Computed example of a mutant assay.
Amino acid sequence: MTQQDFSTVLANVNGVRLTTSSAHFNLAGDGLPLLVVENALGSAAIVIQGAHLVSFIPTGGQDLLWLSPNAIFEPTKAVRGGIPLCMPWFGGHPDGLPSHGFARSTDWTLQSARNLADGRTEIVMSLQDTEQTRSLWPHAFKFEFTILVGTVLELSMNTQNLSDTSVPYTYAFHTYFAVSDYTQVAVSGLADLNYIDTIGVERRLVQEGDVVFTGSTDRVYLDVPEVQTIIDGTRTIRISSCAQSAVVWNPGEHAKNIADIGGDAYQHFVCVERGDVFDNALTLAAGASHTATMTLSA
């Protein structure tokens, strides 16, 4: 995907050059509003629903993020690709509530936008509890998501528990990275770590060497180091985060049965998701906050 894929109308927020669009990538839906951020260092596209990054292109480089050619842009439906925000819970819910929480399918508010002296652009988006969110997660909260667009992409998610009780909390930056061929890439930075293989009967294993993909893969790595890298031929993508978990996922040929992936599109992404999940799940005390960061560069 390139910047030219977005039909845009110029807009200006506090001197920041933004473009806005109603994205019609799939005829099944009426599109969703998005923001395109452009500066001399790079560009990014953010769907307002879910504060969902679907593109990040360093100037002169390639898009780090993969967006499904069959992605559906419909209200309340999570977009396939980019960086969905899975929170305030990750994965399935024991009570049958929506998988991966509600943040990725709820409209966020553009809180601020500004250009920094070093040429980067800072976008801040927020989401606060409503009657609808409290029907799913009965807690007062504020999510504040800061996006810094430059030669690298810097993300910071601050979660505030505004209720008077402690709150269980898991989250992940569910990042889809664009690669040439998933069977030809390797993920380093996870060797010798314990992981949970969630395909079929759940197993706990130890990673030997780099992670490679030979088919359907779904692994939760625990207590991971700060940095992982995706090695894709001569290109290397660096992922740096303070989060304690890393989820490595590609559905393999099962993707042909996933409507918004389909065909052979799965061959061109790998997910390396940073967050705090499974054994690394968090509990936020009453009035407490938690900040998660992630930086992506090529």
Rank of each mutant, 00 (worst) to 15 (best):
M1K: 09
T2K: 15
D5E: 13
D5T: 10
N12F: 02
N14R: 12
T19L: 07
T19R: 12
S21C: 14
S22N: 14
S22W: 03
L27V: 10
G31S: 06
P33E: 14
L34M: 15
V37D: 07
V37Q: 09
L41Y: 05
A45M: 09
I48G: 01
H52D: 06
V54E: 03
V54F: 10
I57F: 11
P69R: 10
A71Y: 02
P75T: 10
G81K: 11
L85E: 02
H93T: 00
G101T: 08
D107Q: 00
W108F: 09
L116Y: 01
D118K: 06
G119H: 11
V124G: 00
Q132W: 00
F143I: 07
E144F: 00
E144H: 01
F145R: 00
T151E: 14
V152S: 14
M157F: 12
N158G: 01
S163Y: 06
Y171R: 01
A172G: 08
S180E: 15
D181W: 07
Y182T: 11
Y182Q: 05
T183F: 04
G189V: 10
A191C: 02
Y195H: 13
Y195S: 05
D197P: 07
T198C: 02
G200S: 07
G200C: 10
G200A: 06
E202N: 06
E202V: 14
V211M: 11
T214W: 03
Y221A: 07
Q228S: 15
Q228C: 14
T229K: 15
I230Q: 00
I231D: 12
T234P: 02
I237N: 02
A246E: 00
N250S: 08
P251G: 03
A259S: 14
A259Y: 08
G263F: 10
D264A: 10
Y266Q: 10
G275A: 11
G275H: 09
F278C: 02
D279G: 02
L282R: 14
L284H: 06
A285Q: 15
A288G: 01
T293L: 08
